[in-house]
Design a protein around this nucleic acid. Structure first.
Lengths: 135, 135
DNA sequence: CTTGACCTTCCCATGGTTGGAAGCCTTATT
DNA sequence: AATAAGGCTTCCAACCATGGGAAGGTCAAG
């Protein structure tokens, strides 16, 4: 099948399929006489794998490793688990960062009257934080 | 003071100060005879404001609005609050996304033996998700 | 044989930041 | 006065993942 159909079937856009090929995440597709990329059900299967890994927040390099393990029949599930848990650690770190930001802002916003007067603790905090960082 | 000193004093790198000037987030700095950018304590104050807004996860466009409100003596605190809460909503949405990913991965990892055998529910899920999405 | 839908490659843009190169300026030391 | 070090300038490129679009080739149906 052509790239458009493979894109529809896999949920990966044609643009991204070409990009993944370019960066070597997937092997170069077979070509028709006219130079059209040709994809098998196997290929679509791999693209769907990639799509789901991305949905789980894996970066391309992580997906590259996952694909390697996927293809490696003699893999150790410990390696897969370790890769996944490293990513979870990463996610949790990002979540904590965002959570800190949200909590700070909510605290400040709660203290803000939110009326037509100009005074606002949010701006005050941005101007000169209460917990003076020693910078 | 020169840009290096302003960078050190504000916590915003010299590179970023020039970038913020280029995109009009901050007004063009005064220049010395030799063309060196000159910064006042006022300028550093503004840069610190920007730095803290970024630390709270605001994108440049949000900071632009915040700076506008900051400078506007007749601002309504309601507008500041609204801007902040919109950002919180954004943060919470991102947090929820990441949390979903982390939870899914943790569930799968928990079911993975993590030994030297190849079978692994993480890879199985990526290959063919249990809750078949109707794509 | 034309039309329209596909495909190809190539370049550009995003956002925020960092890196580097080439060249000028300032300051301090010889 | 010459020189070396380090700071400044501008410009260009890269990162990551994705989308947009142009210019041109191809395929299938009418």
């Amino acid at each position: 099948m052509n790239i458009g159909e493979a894109a529809k079937a896999s949920g990966v856009s044609a643009k991204m399929i070409r990009y993944y090929e370019e960066i070597g995440l997937i092997p170069p597709a077979a070509r028709s006489g006219a130079g059209y990329r040709q994809y098998s059900d196997q290929d679509v299967h791999m693209l769907r794998f990639i799509r789901r890994a991305r949905d789980l927040g894996f970066a391309v390099e992580g997906i590259r490793e996952l694909l390697g393990l996927w293809r490696d029949q003699s893999r150790h599930s410990a390696d897969v688990k370790q890769l996944a848990m490293a990513h979870v650690t990463d996610l949790r770190r990002k979540i904590a960062e965002l959570e800190d930001m949200a909590a700070t802002l909510e605290t400040l916003a709660r203290a803000c009257h939110g009326n037509d007067r100009p005074d606002c603790p949010i701006l005050s905090e941005l101007e000169a934080p209460a917990d003076m960082p020693a910078d």
